[in-house]
Amino acid sequence: MKIFERQVTVEKKSYGNHNIFIRYCCSFIFSWMIHLPFASAMESNAVKHIYDLPGSKDISLNLPSDIAIAPDGRIYVVDGGQHRIVIFKSNGKVDEIIGTKGSEKGQFLYPIGIAIDNEGQVYVADSGNNRIQIFDDDEDFVREFIVKEGDRKIKPVDIAISNDRKTLYVTGNNNHKVMLFDSRGKSLGQWGKQGNSSGEFRYPATIAVGKDNKVYVVDVLNSRVQIFEPDGSLHITAGEWGVKPGQLFRPKGVALDQKDNVYISDSYLDVIQVFNNETRFIYVLGENGNPAKFVAPTGIAIDSKNRIYVTEMLANKISVYQIK
């Protein structure tokens, strides 16, 4: 297997605007570095396709956007086009459906992201209703809170929970920030602002928390994943803008495997690329020597058995692969 080994990261832990001169210099240096000779990363044999969801015609998904795996192995899919959460058993059969279109408790309006904490509590970014809804592991509604910045309602895109369950990280679509809440919805602070400097965002999307409590934020139009320390300082960045292996065009999903490798989906390039825990690009996820091509992949999740679940938004399905 050929692996393109190159470092495409910038270690910046500062915030705020940078001098444009510095940014242009950085861009130049990036441009110079990525033109280094590299081995092809397109021939991968990292995964094996297991099955797709839904597995039968009894139920259909409509623009699924994100996915999360519960501690009991059940698979939670945000079926955004149908304003609901579809829960599959670990064997792939439908177990439960939560919600209908609406704004009442337990209803959804174009939800996008989902997360499940280590106790099985389910958190849904109910984007159209500008709120986070929380359900217990029996799918019973627990509570909700409106996502706001001052008086301004924010559309939450995704949510992640710290390992101690004390902090909820919510990405805001229309304020370009990561917002921190406690489990009752009380604001604990916020990171970033709109911009393309380090620590800034242009449409933060999905978000994940590593075992070391680092926070992984997909920064869509900046074509990167920014990785923060729990205190909000930028640790490192994965990926950069481009169309070559190791580069990102429309990153949407992020997940970590058991080795803390970072998986990033790209909804235009239709691939998932893998970076190591130092954000060094490893390979493009592939099977039988060919890159696995998805149809607008967005949210991804990896379970304890190292199976990766990929929401293919325009294919209206979830592809499940075993990571080797």
């Binding site: 623009l63 086009g81 996008i112 984007s127 139009l221 235009y268």
Partner: peptide
């Protein structure tokens, strides 16, 4: 359409209603 959807999928702008039900 794919280029449009790469932003209008809800993660940047939410125009998913345009793509519902295929």
């Amino acid at each position: 359409e794919r280029m449009c959807f790469s932003c209008h999928d809800g993660f940047v702008l939410d125009s998913r209603f345009m793509w519902e039900n295929d």
